[in-house]
């Protein structure tokens, strides 16, 4: 099952507070998508709307043409794991996995147990008494073993130590290769997980400000380094996201594709052109007041 998620003028408010406004766009196909943005930008609200936990205030959200709120057909096709504590009550880890196995049509229990072993998750321990990192491991296992056609992971790896996080990335990629599906990952750890993203959706101040393939986004952002007057001349008519001055030297992060003419000018001014890591692009894009439209 290939999934298409469409937002058409989607908005969500909590009383007087507007969490999302004018959200438009489409994500489709089996791919790993990074949902990125600053704290409070609206990422979790967007994911909760996709899962059908929340109802849009206005506009439409359609998954394969259907609204997800109270949708029996979609309820078991969308797995949403998040960083918050789900109310497992007195459930042990083993029981939580059993509950998941009774819930998700494509659940692979053998794989879940294999992951539990790899993450050193104690099956007989109560979920409530797990550390944050351990609970995140449980959520990651549920997200992966559910094999849901649309899997949403909201800061799933919060609190995990570095070896566990790298184990998760490794398993995520391997399992995705085995069972392609749409995986949407919301994260702050862009540097670590960014290499997995095929597409990036950037949410800022309650709306989607950018949706690009990761490759395209990396290609259309670069940093120019040289003497301050030369950098200023070069970037005069370009969209500059960020500048830094050190003595006589200046660097400028430019958003926009580098044309042949600009390459020639850079050579002429003896400017150094370098790529910008994904995390820096996101930081620069979301720390500007005006974000350029792609």
């Amino acid at each position: 099952m290939s999934v298409t998620v469409e937002w058409k003028g989607l908005a969500k408010s909590y009383g007087a507070h507007s969490a999302l406004t004018h959200v438009n766009g489409t994500i489709a196909g089996n791919k790993i998508i990074g949902l990125l943005g600053r704290n409070g930008s609206g990422k979790t609200t967007l994911l909760a709307l996709i899962k059908g936990l929340l109802r849009p205030t206005s506009g439409q959200l359609l998954i394969n043409g259907q609204a997800p709120f109270e949708n029996r057909a979609l309820a078991r096709e969308i797995c949403f794991v998040r960083d918050s504590r789900m109310t497992y009550g007195s459930f042990k880890v083993r029981e939580a996995l059993k509950l998941a196995s009774a819930s998700w049509p494509n659940w692979d229990h053998g794989y879940a147990l294999h992951l539990a072993e790899r993450f050193s998750l104690p099956l007989e321990k109560k979920v409530q008494s797990l550390s944050l990192g351990m609970e995140s491991s449980l959520n990651a296992i549920i997200g992966l073993a559910s094999r849901a056609p649309l899997t949403l992971m909201d800061e799933t790896y919060n609190g995990m130590d570095a070896p566990s996080r790298y184990l998760f990335y490794e398993e995520l990629l391997e399992d995705y290769m085995r069972s392609p599906r749409m995986l949407v990952l919301s994260t702050h750890l862009i540097e670590e997980v960014g290499r997995l993203f095929e597409e990036v959706v950037l949410v800022d101040q309650g709306t989607i400000v950018l949706h690009e393939t990761t490759e395209q986004l990396l290609m259309m952002t670069y940093v120019v380094i040289g003497t301050a007057p030369d950098v200023e001349r070069f970037t005069d008519s370009l969209q500059v996201l960020h500048t830094q001055v050190l003595g006589n030297m200046k660097s400028a992060v430019v958003f926009g594709e580098l044309s042949k003419e600009q390459e020639r000018l850079a050579d002429l001014y003896h400017l150094d052109i370098q790529p910008v890591p994904l995390q820096d692009i996101i930081v620069h894009l979301t720390s500007r007041k005006e974000v350029p439209s792609s």
Binding site: R72, I78, G89
Partner: peptide
């Protein structure tokens, strides 16, 4: 409601069910 609604919704149960 407080003890079960969230976990059940997260496991593919609808409100009606």
């Amino acid at each position: 409601t407080y003890g079960h609604l969230t976990i059940l919704m997260n496991h593919g149960v609808t409100r009606k069910q």
